[in-house]
């Protein structure tokens, strides 16, 4: 097996594993840029995964091959609704953001498994029949050498994820709405003085993060797990947080970090069948994203600083 063939296996798998992380990390960027720490991304992904799988199982007969796409959209709505809890608690009732996020995670797992047991009478759902198809992108996959590596044998949704990260960059850095989000996350009082409604913008930030994390969770469950149980998400949300930090709270940076973590994840799974990689104990690949994030935070690879006001509730009229 030569190097090129190894690339043919690893790169499409990396792009696929990165897709849920990209979406969720972008959600995290929205929330934290508006000044709300979202530890609850994990729980929001769980809700997305649950909704996606249950919808898929229920309506596969109706929607056929479009089922996974529609179930991702439904999961997005579920994510928004669930993130409303976090928004109300942290923004309106000034609850500690980290604690609320932890509560959201516990609630998500408890609620979804409760419902699974209620609906299916067992600890996990059945396997879905309609999943995303692996595709070669027309035209691009015909490019010699690069095409088969980067544009073949993966999922449309993964390429959409990469595209979306650029759209998010445009929204955050080139539109008035993006400017407001960033302003509210850095200095809410100044933004308020200039007539920006801090509460509205923060609600928007958290709800958008719920939408993205819901999508991320549904994609992960649809592509990799094919069912839903307590272990379906298992840390993907926290890895998305890591990607967001590693990408320095920048949408494109987060996307890059998510791709890198996707590589680590895919290597820890397919690596055992590849030359060279099979000699590395998979534990190093498993912990790589987390250890690298810690190193990034300590500033050895350029310091990563959070938005200034993230973590603090905004109380109008307080100095």
């Amino acid at each position: 097996m030569d190097f090129y063939q190894v690339l043919l296996i690893i790169i499409p798998s990396m792009i696929a594993y990165a897709a849920p992380l990209i979406f969720t990390a972008l959600g995290g960027v929205f929330s934290e840029r508006s000044g709300v720490i979202n530890i609850g991304l994990e729980g929001l992904m769980v809700i997305g995964a649950f909704t996606g799988i249950v919808f898929n199982l229920t309506y596969a007969d109706v929607f056929g091959i479009w089922t996974p796409w529609i179930s991702v959209l439904v999961a997005m709505v579920a994510g928004v609704l669930f993130s409303l809890l976090l928004a109300v608690a942290t923004i309106t009732f000034r609850a500690d953001q980290t604690v609320s996020g932890v509560a959201l995670n516990l609630l998500a797992v408890g609620l979804t498994i409760f419902l699974v047991k209620k609906i299916y009478d067992k600890g996990q759902t059945d396997f879905i029949s309609e999943t995303f198809a692996r595709i070669d992108i027309p035209l691009l996959s015909d490019i010699p050498f690069i095409g088969p590596v980067f544009f073949s044998n993966s999922y449309y949704i993964a390429y959409i994820a990469i595209l979306v990260s650029f759209i998010v960059w445009y929204i955050l850095y080139k539109t008035p709405f993006g400017l407001r989000i960033r302003a509210v996350g850095e200095h809410p009082m100044a933004a308020d003085t200039m007539g920006v409604n801090v509460f509205k913008i923060r609600y928007a930030g958290v709800l958008i993060s719920g939408a993205f994390a819901g999508v991320g969770g549904a994609i992960h469950a649809t592509i990799f797990a094919n069912d839903f149980s307590h272990a379906t998400i298992n840390g993907q949300g926290f890895m998305a947080i890591a990607a967001m930090i590693f990408g320095k709270w920048h949408p494109v940076g987060a996307m890059g970090a998510a791709l890198f973590f996707g590589l680590a994840q895919s290597l820890s799974i397919v690596g055992s069948s590849l030359p060279f990689f099979k000699d590395i104990p998979s534990v190093y690949l498993l912990i790589a994203p987390y250890v690298l994030t810690i190193i990034a935070l300590t500033g050895f690879i350029g310091r990563a600083d959070a938005p200034k006001a993230s973590g603090q509730p905004y109380i109008k009229g307080e100095r």
Binding site: L85, A89, A95, A103, I113, K118
Partner: peptide, 22 residues
Amino acid sequence: IPSEIVDIIIALIIFFVAASYF
């Protein structure tokens, strides 16, 4: 009744304590 009902209750209690302003 699935035992996860307790996880839900505990999570909600944290929410209520955290949002004590409420």
